[in-house]
Design a protein around this nucleic acid. Structure first.
Length: 289
DNA sequence: AGCCAGGACAAGT
DNA sequence: ACTTGTCATGGC
């Protein structure tokens, strides 16, 4: 029976939370869904909105640094998807595929990747970040996003900057965005910024779309947003866990483990989570080479 | 030196 | 509807 996390202590530095299930800060923030966190000595730290926060798992307890009890309840519980029953997700993912050889792959992916939570990230930041991600690698994506923030974002602390809003990016202009290392993606980022800054309802209409197809079609009116960037944006920024982003890693997974095909719709609303498990699993398997 | 990275576009079949 | 060349950049 699923029940929500419980705040068991609050200090000036943060909160201590119990009943967080299998949640792994390490896996969650290292699985390629976000680009503004780094891990040091078992503690992940990064910028969310206008604050630097940190998360650390110690036994059954989760420590959330620079977060108040009210903020945790009102925002971070949802941000971390700790309000969703991932034990049920895990068993659904492990049993969704009818062919036993396929199910065996999924059980192994769940075993390795369980603990990941799909974050509910800020929509504009997610859209912009995944435009940067195209034909790029994760370390360099982080570097470019960091440059965008340091150059255009509001200063929120010692060396810390918020993600710049769409209007700021739009006003900065394509040349400036290009110069921050975005390369051929600069006009795409500008077009995304134009959509968001000049149409205050754009992201809301994507969020309100009543089918995946409608949300996807609307997002893809932005130049530079194709099926993959759209799927990642919907999954990580719009809580659409039915999205199944197909990138080079997942293509590799499909031909390596599912030579007879993979119907990801069998995962239903957990498709995006299954995808993330497979993505993390494959990268984990190939660790060190 | 060439290939790859959480791809998408435009032009050509 | 499906294939191909091209787009910056850095790490290996």
């Amino acid at each position: 029976m699923f029940s929500l996390p419980v705040i068991v202590d609050e200090t000036k530095d943060g909160v201590t939370v119990s009943n967080v299930g299998t949640f792994s800060p390490h896996k969650t923030f290292d699985c390629g869904q976000c680009f503004r966190f780094s891990e040091t000595d078992g503690t992940v730290s990064g910028i969310v909105g206008k604050k630097r926060v940190s998360f650390r798992r110690d036994g059954d307890l989760l420590y959330a640094g620079n977060v108040t009890a009210d903020e945790f309840s009102a925002y971070f519980m949802h941000y971390l998807s700790l309000d969703r029953d991932y034990d049920s997700v895990d068993s659904a993912v492990a049993t969704a595929l009818p062919r036993e050889s396929d199910a065996a792959v999924m059980r192994e992916a769940v075993r390795v990747s369980s603990g990941i939570r799909i974050l509910r990230q800020e929509k504009w930041e997610t859209l912009c970040s995944f435009i940067v991600s195209q034909n790029n690698n994760i370390p360099r994506i982080k570097k470019i996003v960091s440059a965008l923030c340091a150059s255009l974002g509001e200063r929120i602390g010692d060396g810390d900057y918020a993600f710049p809003d769409a209007k700021t990016v739009l006003d900065a202009g394509e040349e400036k965005i290009f110069s921050l290392g975005t390369g051929f993606r600069a006009p795409y980022i500008i077009d995304a910024a134009r959509h968001v800054a000049e149409d205050g309802t754009f992201l809301d209409r994507v969020a309100a779309a009543d089918s995946y197809e409608d949300a996807d079609a609307l997002l893809r009116t932005v130049k530079g947003v194709g099926p993959k960037v759209s799927a990642c944006t919907l999954l990580f920024g719009f809580s659409r866990t039915d999205a199944f982003p197909i990138d080079v890693w997942i293509k590799r997974v499909m031909e390596k483990y599912f030579p007879d095909g993979l119907d990801y719709n069998l995962f239903g609303d957990a498709a995006g989570i299954a995808q993330q498990y497979l993505f993390y699993y494959e990268r984990y398997v190939n660790e060190g080479k």
